[in-house]
Structure formats: structure tokens, C-alpha cells
Design a binder for these strands. Structure first.
Lengths: 122, 122
DNA sequence: TTCGGATATATCAGAACTCGATATATATGT
DNA sequence: ACATATATATCGAGTTCTGATATATCCGAA
């Protein structure tokens, strides 16, 4: 189970939001599901990141009340904060994917230049 | 010019040392050269990292005096601290490469699951 | 011969990041 | 009634990041 750092978190969260609006808790679950349980982004990584994305204008937000089944319509239930990918966020996602591909390419090239393998012409 | 973070720095530095012993300044130059000028690891990232690798037993070190051409043999010239990859470091490099490949694989899979591309069946 | 740029190692400090723990509250299943 | 899941959010100790600073030698050009 790999804990994601900010760079990867950003890529992955924006990618999840590219599927449609979602909220913190659900994004956490989506990341675990889509990575087949390999990626983990906990609440203490998620919420500060989402706040940052909002400040950068990559996502827009709105609150929604989650009413319990047959609950008093006037009672205030649990709240969800929805995040929607903005056009700027969409472009940023594409940039992140590009950057990620480039990094892969450069790193592969870098490692290929060396006797990276232990030995054995055996 | 991409500034390397610790994970990538470690991979890249160990990889350079797999070619043979080297020292901080030369490793900096080697990273720039081998990445075709794309990777950058500055002194303030390099030396703390090398110290860490030494503490972890991934590299061994030794000092060497760099004598000036025809200099007084008793005069103390500039010093170099050489770093040599240890067997443990060699194994760690292999692990890092594996981890890096796995991350690539997982991330590619993750991104492939989504409508990541902007649009256009064009 | 003096001066600047390259070589060489290293730390500092403010900022940003990490991550388990904590806080708060509602919803659901047993 | 109680545990677990849903849901958002912050705290704080520790780590990492990065430009700036410190120190000193070497070398070539003016």
C-alpha cells in the first residue's frame, strides 16, 4: 500500500475528478478502488490538497446536505463538499500527465545508460 | 530543468555510483550530463542526501587530497570526498528501480481507466 | 598579478510537505 | 446500545525543499 506524495496525489485526484464531480471521502475510496488497493491518500493528505486545488482555481466547490431516509426535511443532516474540475483544472491535468510521461521517459533513458543490472553475461 | 525530489534523487545518485566511485560535485555534473540537462540536483540537495546514504550504509566514503600540478607536496590542497556504492547500496538500487517500475505501471493503469484525454475522436 | 569563474564541500533558515492522531458529527447495521 | 462507516477538518512533531550563504582552492585570461 503506497502512500501518495503531493505530486502523485494531485495527478490522481484530478484524474478522479475528470470522471465527474466528487467529494473528499469518495475520492479516497475511488483512489483505493481504481488502484486495486495499491494507492492510499488519507484524510490528512486529501483535505489540504483539495483546499490547495481550490485556491489554485483547478476545482470549484459546493456544499450539499445529505438527508437521511425519511428524515425531517428541516433537520440538518451530514454535509458533503463537492469538487468539480474546472477548465483550468482540466488543462492542468493534461500538463501533469505530460510531465509524468516525460519524467518516465527521462528516467528510463537515464537508467538505460548504465550497467544498472547486477552483472551476469551468464 | 526538473529539480529532483528525494526519491528520484536517491535513484539517480545510486545509479551514477553504480558506474563507479564519484564525489558530490562530479555527481551533480554527471546527473546533468546523463539527463541531457533535464535533471538538476543542487549542492543543498546533494550533500544532505549523500550523508543520509552514508548513514544508511548504502555508500562508503574516503577523502582524497587534490594536489595542484607541481605543488608543494606538504601543502594541503583541495579535498574531495569520494563515495563508493556498497553491496547493500547495490541491492537498494535494484529495489528502487523495481519500485519505480511498479509505480509507473500502477500509475499508467490508473490513468488508463479514465477519460483522461480531452475529447476528440477526430 | 589580479580577478573572475569553475571546482569542491557544507550549513542555514524559512517554507512546504508528511502523516498519525485527534476532534466533531451524522448514518447504519446488528 | 454499540460498533463501524461516512464525512470534513486541523494539529503538531518530524522531514524535506531550496535559495542563500560560507569557506577555500584551482585555473585561465586580461
Amino acid at each position: 500500500m503506497l502512500n501518495l506524495k503531493q505530486d502523485h496525489s494531485t495527478l490522481v485526484v484530478l484524474s478522479v475528478l475528470a470522471d465527474g464531480p466528487s467529494y473528499g471521502y469518495a475520492i479516497t475510496k475511488a483512489i483505493a478502488a481504481k488502484s486495486d488497493g495499491h494507492f492510499k491518500l488519507t484524510a490528512s493528505g486529501m483535505y489540504p490538497l483539495l483546499t490547495k486545488l481550490e485556491k489554485q482555481g483547478l476545482v470549484t466547490t459546493s456544499w450539499e446536505e445529505v438527508k437521511a431516509e425519511g428524515a425531517d426535511p428541516d433537520a440538518s443532516g451530514r454535509k458533503r463538499k463537492w469538487y468539480t474540475l474546472s477548465p483550468k483544472g482540466r488543462r492542468q491535468l493534461d500538463k501533469h500527465i505530460e510531465a509524468h510521461k516525460q519524467m518516465q521517459h527521462l528516467l528510463d533513458n537515464f537508467l538505460a545508460q548504465t550497467t544498472t543490472a547486477p552483472s551476469a553475461t551468464t
